[in-house]
Amino acid sequence: MAGEAQHGKDAGHAAAEHGEGLVFHPFDQFIVKPMFHDGPVGLFTFTNAAFWMLLAVAVIFCVMVLGSSKRAVIPGRAQSIGELLYGFLHKMISDVAGKEALPFLPYIMTLFLFIVTANLLGLLPLSYTSTSHFAVTVTLALAVFITITVVGFVKHGTKFLGLFWVSSAPLPLRPVLAAVEVISYFIRPVSHSIRLGGNILAGHAVIKVFAAFASITLISPVAILGITALYGLEVLVAVVQAYVFTILTCVYLKDAMHPSH
């Protein structure tokens, strides 16, 4: 569904070139290219990645700022969305990470809103999905990782290292557990980023593979039904992955706030 027309064109193009009936190019939708001209991609080039990210900013601005501009005591629709998001994240942070983590609300809300908006914008047909790129998700996960580590050391100093020293375990086991804890701590940004990027990438690629099958007349009804079902699943995944990314951020933040086991 997403980018089906574009893919059909690509498939036809490639089929003409190679003389084949069925060609898969599920990754063409992820190509980063300059938005307004041809040529190489430099550091500051205005690419499709930049366009879709800035569109996410515009959407967030419309919902969060323009929606609440009336400051109505009885909220309208857009203001309700903003207030629901605020209440949702406020509750999530205070439930998972504790009340003293509430100053991080803007930071966590930034991550959540960017991810959920980029995921949902990426589901528009012919769009580009920022969060399917590991460059983006790794940056997000590293930002979380660095924030957690810095906050942990600033709040607790060297006591933050107690996170790795499981004092409830028997003494001979503790060095082993410490090694495991250190490894899992450094694995966190990897799994954190690949979970988000991989889910989005996999969903879009699978939809594109089904779209290629739709070019075969015999199985096209099945393929189109499959695309429809997968699209519904992907809408769910887009929201759930943003939720999971945010809640794991809160869980990690709790470690930084209360490092002792």
Partner: peptide
């Protein structure tokens, strides 16, 4: 429900790793 989603995310992430290796 929160723990449910976290568990699903962890289980699914490993499948996604396998999928990426395949890709």
């Amino acid at each position: 429900v929160t723990n449910f989603f976290i568990g699903i995310a962890f289980a699914e992430a490993l499948g996604i790793f396998a999928f990426l290796v395949a890709l």
